[in-house]
Amino acid sequence: MPNEAVMDVETVTPVEDDTVAKAATVVRNYVRSNMSALRDEDLHDEDNIFEKGFVTSIFAMQLLDFIETTFDVEVPDDRITLQNFSSVQRISRMVGELKNA
């Protein structure tokens, strides 16, 4: 997946909302639990999880299912983009927006 990720470098607004912060904790733990145990590099919330190779491509499917099941939201088609799923920060912000919508 890393070789097909087309990401912009837009600066993401720092996490400030409580829902977003809680979502970040859950998503961070989930991503960490799916990272290779053979990698020593730690995950930061702004890291692109696909470009940095923390997870494999099949994880995109699992991640979408996890988000919808865990946060009881339906991610609309126009939100299902590589950019929205690229980092803990972006995922948790999207979850916060969907929960507050």
Binding site: M1, E4, A5, V6, F50, S57, I58, F59, A60, M61, L64, D77, D78, I80, T81, L82
Partner: peptide
């Protein structure tokens, strides 16, 4: 199907699953 750039990570992996 789905959105631009999600063909392999999401659509193909869903299908292969």
């Amino acid at each position: 199907v789905s959105s631009i750039g999600m063909g392999f990570g999401l659509v193909a992996n869903t299908a292969l699953h």
